[in-house]
Amino acid sequence: MTEQRYSINEFIEETKQEDKEQGLFELETPRFLEVNVNGDVWAKAGSMVSYRGNIKFVREGILEHGIGKLFKKAFTGEGTSLMKASGCGKLYLADNGKKISILNLNNESIFVNGNNLLAFESELNWDIKLMKRVAGMLAGGLFNVKMGGVGMVAITTHYEPLTLLVSPNNPVFTDPNATVAWSGNLQPEFVTDISFKTFLGRGSGESIQMKFEGDGFVVVQPYEETYFTQPSSS
C-alpha cells in the first residue's frame, strides 16, 4: 500500500475544492455533493458538512408539506427529517461516507428509499408512499419517497450501486435492507419464503423479499441497512 504523504501545498492542491460549473448539483468527490444554492433546496437533515455564502437552514416544519404528508410520516414511523437550505452560496453535503449519485429527472418518476435520499430540487413533486406492512418485517418499518417531474435528486449508497432491469417475464427479488430505488411505474410487493429464512434478511428475522414485476429497474447496494425501532413513550 502506497503511503499518502504530502507537503502542505501538495495536500491542498490534491484535495482542494474545484468549480466544475455543472449546475445546481455537482460531485466534488464521489462522497461529497456540492449544491450551488440559488433559492431553495431540500436536503436530509444533518447532512450539511460545510457552506459558504448567505444560506439559511430551516428544519422541515410540521405542516411544511401539508397534513397528508405529516399523517403518513407519523403512520409509517418515518425517521428521516428534511431541512430546507435557502439563499445563495455553496453547500456541501455528505451522509456517513456513502457514495453519491445524481439523477436528472426529465418528466420521469422514481421511488427512493427514505434512508438513501440526500437532496432534491424544490421544483420536484414528491410524496411519501406507504408500503404494505408485514408483521415483524423490519424493526422501525420501511418507507419510500416518490420523486417526479423535472429536476435533480441525489441518492446515496453504501459502495457502488447495481441496477437490475425488470421485464414482464423476468421479475426481480431483492432484500428490503439492500434496496435503494426503483422506477416509478413499478409497484413492489412483499413476499416470504420460509425455506430461505436462515439465508436471507439478516436484520429482518424473516425471509422477507421485495418482488418487482413489470417493465423498469431496481437499484440495490452491496450492504444491508439496519433499521431501528423508535423508542415508545410510556
Rank of each mutant, 00 (worst) to 15 (best):
N96H: 12
G97M: 07
K99E: 12
K99D: 12
I100S: 03
S101G: 01
N104W: 02
N107Q: 11
S109R: 08
I110E: 04
V112A: 10
N115Y: 12
L117C: 06
L118K: 08
S122Q: 15
L124H: 09
N125D: 12
D127H: 11
D127L: 05
I128V: 14
K129I: 15
R133M: 11
G136E: 02
G136S: 07
N144S: 10
N144Q: 07
V145Q: 12
K146N: 14
M147N: 02
G149C: 15
G149L: 12
V150W: 07
G151S: 10
M152H: 11
V153A: 04
A154V: 06
I155K: 00
T156E: 06
T157H: 09
H158L: 03
H158D: 12
Y159E: 14
E160M: 07
P161E: 10
T163Q: 13
T163D: 08
L165N: 07
V166T: 01
P168Q: 01
N170I: 00
N170T: 06
N170H: 09
P171D: 05
D175G: 14
A181M: 02
W182N: 04
G184C: 08
L186C: 06
Q187R: 11
V191A: 09
T192K: 10
D193A: 11
I194C: 04
F196H: 06
F196P: 00
F196A: 07
K197W: 01
R202A: 12
E206Y: 09
S207K: 13
I208M: 10
Q209Y: 08
F212N: 00
D215F: 00
V220T: 12
